[in-house]
């Protein structure tokens, strides 16, 4: 029931947003012609063509497709490539270009997830990073390790140093602190739960793929003080996918 209410509320929001912005962006076509498709995809049929010089309204964007409305009220989907050099009403060129390497280098926010092994057990991590400077990132991550005998969760706050941040392939070093929690599976009897601070150090590499995608590999070692004179060490490797904004 709560889901339904949430969804209805969301639908209402989307509806009100869609109808609040009745004033759409108007641009002038500068390509020899643009092709209007019936849907937002390369396979949808072209049903109309508009010429250079015509004014069009841009109603909506989905990935690389723009829904446009012509002066004769025809509506269709146009690929970004054909609108790349259109002019706005003020005679300025629009900026419908693709995300480029320069956008990657100037990114501020990075969101991603990763999968790998924590010692021999599978680990799943979700992380959010923010570029403090081009060479320094702050990152928060939550990892979950599900093993045969126990489950662990790690909450980490990491600082990431990126020496060659202007490269497509750039290595980095991380240092961080966090909390390590280990709870045994119920099928195990008399095993205690462990909750402790931890510190970690690691290195990795980031590779910019395309658009706003990147892949990333991490190697990390966690140090977890269990008691005053016992420190457990865990090694972890992960591979992950990230999206930047």
């Amino acid at each position: 029931m709560r889901f339904l209410i949430f969804f209805l509320w969301l639908a209402l929001c989307a509806f009100s947003v869609a109808h609040a912005e009745e004033e759409y962006a108007r641009v002038q076509i500068t390509d020899p012609y643009i092709e209007l498709r019936s849907g937002a995809g390369r396979g949808f049929p072209i049903f109309y063509v508009a010429e250079r010089g015509e004014w069009i309204e841009i109603l909506l964007r989905k990935t690389d497709w723009f829904k446009v409305r012509l002066a004769n009220r025809k509506e269709g989907w146009v690929n970004r490539a054909q609108l790349e050099t259109t002019l706005t009403e003020a005679g300025v060129q629009t900026a419908f270009r693709d995300s480029l390497l320069t956008d990657y280098l100037n990114r501020r926010l990075e969101v991603g997830f990763a999968w790998g092994r924590f010692e021999k057990d599978p680990v799943l991590a979700a992380r959010v990073g923010y570029a403090l400077t081009p060479h320094l990132f702050a990152e928060f991550s939550i990892s979950e390790v599900t093993a045969v005998f126990s489950n662990s969760s790690l909450h980490q706050l990491n600082l990431m140093m990126v020496p060659f941040s202007d490269q497509r392939i750039s290595p980095f070093f991380t240092l961080g602190v966090g909390r390590y929690k280990n709870s045994p599976q119920v099928t195990l009897v008399n095993a205690p739960e462990v909750s402790s601070k931890n510190a970690n150090a690691g290195l990795g590499v980031r590779v910019y793929l395309t658009r706003n995608f990147l892949i990333r590999g991490d190697l990390r070692e966690y140090m977890v003080p269990i008691t005053d004179n016992r420190v457990d060490k865990f090694k972890e490797w992960t591979v992950g996918l990230g999206v930047f904004f």
Partner: peptide
């Protein structure tokens, strides 16, 4: 003075919902 602000375009790349 002409307004040279680039118009805002609604980008619908995020999808949210429920399932049963």
């Amino acid at each position: 003075r002409r307004d040279v602000k680039l118009p805002h375009i609604d980008v619908d790349d995020i999808e949210v919902g429920f399932y049963v």
